[in-house]
Amino acid sequence: MPRSALKKVTHSKRKLSRPRRPSRTKLGVAVLAFLLGLILFSKIGGLFGSGEDISFKNYIWNGNSTLNLVVKSDNIYVASYNPQDSSFTILKVPDETYASVPLGFGRWPMRSVYDLGQAEKPLIGARLLKDTTGMLFGVPVDGYILTSGNFGTMAENARKNPFSIIGAIRESKTDLNIVESIRFWWGVKGVRFDRFKSADLENSDLTSWALLPDGSRGLELDGLRLDQFIQSRFEDSKLKDEGLGIGILNATDHPGLAEKAARVVTNIGGRVILTGNLEERQHNSFVLGKDGYTQTRLSQVFAPACIQTSWPLGLFRSGGCFLQSDSFNFSRAEVTIVLGEDYFLRYNSTKGN
Rank of each mutant, 00 (worst) to 15 (best):
P2Q: 03
R3E: 06
A5W: 10
K8R: 15
V9A: 11
K13A: 11
R14N: 12
K15Q: 12
L16K: 15
R20Q: 12
V31R: 15
L32T: 13
A33V: 05
L38A: 10
F41S: 13
F41N: 13
F41L: 15
S42M: 14
S42F: 14
K43T: 05
G46N: 05
G49A: 08
S50I: 09
G51K: 11
I54H: 07
F56K: 11
K57H: 09
S65V: 10
S65L: 08
L69I: 11
V70M: 00
D74Y: 07
N75I: 04
A79H: 11
Y81E: 10
P83F: 05
Q84G: 01
D85E: 14
S86L: 14
S86K: 15
F88P: 04
K92Q: 15
A99V: 15
S100C: 04
P102Q: 05
G104T: 11
G104S: 12
W108N: 07
M110R: 04
S112R: 14
L116V: 05
Q118S: 15
G125T: 08
A126E: 06
R127I: 02
L129T: 07
K130C: 10
T132M: 06
G134M: 08
M135Q: 13
F137Q: 08
P140Q: 07
V141F: 06
V141I: 15
D142C: 02
I145G: 01
G149H: 07
N150H: 10
N150L: 02
M154C: 00
M154S: 10
E156A: 14
R159N: 10
K160H: 13
N161V: 03
P162I: 09
S164E: 10
I166V: 12
G167W: 07
E171G: 07
S172V: 02
I178T: 15
E180F: 04
R183V: 10
R183S: 04
R183D: 05
W186A: 10
G187R: 02
R192L: 11
K197Q: 14
A199C: 07
D200V: 08
D200H: 09
D200M: 03
A210K: 14
L212V: 08
L212E: 10
P213M: 08
P213A: 14
L219V: 01
L219Q: 04
G223S: 12
L226R: 11
S232V: 03
S232A: 13
F234G: 02
K238I: 02
E242F: 09
L244Q: 02
G245M: 05
L249H: 02
A251R: 00
T252W: 01
T252M: 03
D253A: 12
P255Y: 00
G256Y: 08
G256N: 04
E259P: 00
R263A: 09
R263G: 08
R263P: 06
I268G: 06
G269K: 05
I273G: 02
T275N: 02
G276D: 07
N277L: 12
N277E: 15
E279N: 12
Q282G: 02
G289W: 01
K290V: 15
G292W: 06
Y293Q: 03
R297M: 09
F302C: 00
F302L: 04
A305F: 06
I307T: 04
Q308D: 13
S310M: 07
G314W: 03
G319A: 05
G320R: 00
C321V: 01
Q324V: 02
D326P: 09
A333N: 04
T336F: 00
T336R: 01
L339S: 03
E341A: 13
F344G: 00
F344S: 08
F344T: 08
L345F: 10
